[in-house]
């Protein structure tokens, strides 16, 4: 399978978890990476600056109708949900919170499942609420690839536990192994 997009959702403890993955991951140019991290509705671009340092890639806090491109890291802004259109443009959305969260991981995951189907990899990391599980399930439903961080060693187990319950994911991995596994999955891109 050829994967074009990686979407990662996380909440409490997310920044350290993201650092572990993104400093191991190598194939940024082959995919678009979208990160949904729960955070305070009034927060600045601190997160995108940190992610830019971690990845050495262009890191954009998504604005409405931003175009999705490979090689770029996208962060969903606080207090908005992000959807993806089938022409590759993001649409932002200020509608009701989902699972007490805006941005909601479910909203973005479902949208990517719908637009990309089989070429999306969805990952749920540490977090302290139930957001993300339903979205990951929809990625699985369209035969995308699904990974959940091992809840027993996660900083906050609720979110990965719920994602496992909803989805029965393709893999449950230790945090330290996720970056390397992504390298394998994406390196195989283009092979039959």
């Amino acid at each position: 399978m050829k994967y074009d997009v990686v979407v990662i959702g996380t909440s409490a403890g997310g920044l350290d978890a993201l650092r572990k993955i993104l400093t191991t991951f190598k194939h940024f140019d082959d995919i678009a990476l979208i990160i949904i991290q729960h955070r305070n509705p009034i927060s600045n671009n601190y997160l995108s600056n940190i992610l830019s340092d971690m990845t050495g890639r262009i890191t954009l806090e998504i604005e409405d109708k931003t175009l999705l491109k490979k090689g770029v890291v996208y962060v969903v802004p606080p207090n908005y949900h992000a959807l993806i259109e089938k022409n590759g443009l993001f649409t932002l959305d200020t509608s009701e919170k989902v699972c007490y969260a805006r941005p909601s991981i479910d909203v973005t995951f479902k949208s990517f499942a719908d637009a990309f189907g089989v070429s999306v990899i969805g990952i749920i990391l540490t977090g302290a609420n139930n957001d993300g599980g339903q979205g990951l399930y929809e990625i699985k439903l369209v035969h995308g690839y699904t990974i959940v961080q091992n809840p027993t060693t996660a900083e906050a187990p609720v979110m990965p536990n719920y994602a496992i319950k909803c989805t029965n994911p393709d893999e449950i991995l230790e945090l330290d192994d996720i970056g390397a596994r992504l390298n394998e999955l994406i390196r195989k891109n283009g092979e039959k």
Binding site: V5, L68, N87, G88, D114, F116
Partner: peptide
Amino acid sequence: MTDDFKFSNNDEDI
């Protein structure tokens, strides 16, 4: 609009 990706249209879109 972007050649980078293949988007899937499905019956629901219709």
